Simulated assay, not measured.
Amino acid sequence: MELQGITIDFYDKRTCGLLPDLCLKWDIRYDEIEDNEELIQYWEESLNRVLSKTDKVVSGNMDGKSILYSADEDAINIIKEEFKELELNKINYEDIIKCENCLKNDYLEK
Rank of each mutant, 00 (worst) to 15 (best):
R49V: 01
K53F: 03
N48H: 13
G64I: 05
E87V: 12
L88D: 02
I78A: 04
D95N: 09
A71M: 12
D95K: 03
D55L: 07
E73K: 15
E85V: 08
G60A: 07
K56V: 09
D74I: 10
D63V: 06
D63N: 12
I96R: 00
I79D: 04
E73L: 11
Y93E: 12
I96F: 03
I76P: 02
N48I: 03
I67G: 00
S59W: 06
S52A: 12
F83S: 01
L51Q: 13
A71P: 00
N77G: 08
A75K: 01
F83D: 00
L51H: 09
E81V: 02
K65R: 15
S59G: 03
D74Q: 12
E94H: 07
V57M: 05
F83K: 04
E85P: 00
L86Q: 07
V50I: 11
M62H: 02
E85A: 15
L86R: 09
K80P: 04
N48T: 11
V50L: 03
I76N: 08
V50Q: 02
E94S: 15
S66T: 10
I76V: 15
L68E: 03
G60T: 06
L51C: 11
R49M: 09
R49P: 04
I78P: 04
I78M: 07
K90S: 14
D95E: 13
F83L: 04
K56L: 15
S70G: 08
V58S: 01
K84W: 11
D63R: 12
Y93L: 15
D95G: 01
D95P: 00
E87H: 10
L51Y: 08
S52H: 07
D95W: 05
K65P: 02
M62P: 00
D72Y: 08
E73G: 04
N77C: 03
L68Q: 03
T54P: 02
T54R: 03
D72G: 06
V57H: 03
R49Y: 04
N89F: 13
E87R: 13
I96P: 00
V50M: 04
V58H: 02
L86D: 08
L51W: 10
T54K: 02
V58G: 00
N61A: 11
K56G: 10
V58Y: 06
A71K: 14
E82S: 07
K80C: 07
V58K: 03
S59P: 04
E87Q: 15
N92K: 08
N92G: 14
V58P: 00
K84L: 07
N77E: 13
L86I: 09
E94F: 14
E94M: 10
V57R: 02
G64V: 07
Y69S: 03
S70I: 06
S66H: 14
F83Q: 04
T54H: 07
E85T: 11
L88H: 08
D55R: 08
L88E: 05
E94T: 12
I91M: 09
N92H: 07
Y93H: 06
F83A: 05
V57T: 12
S70K: 01
D95A: 05
E82K: 12
N48D: 14
K65I: 06
S52D: 14
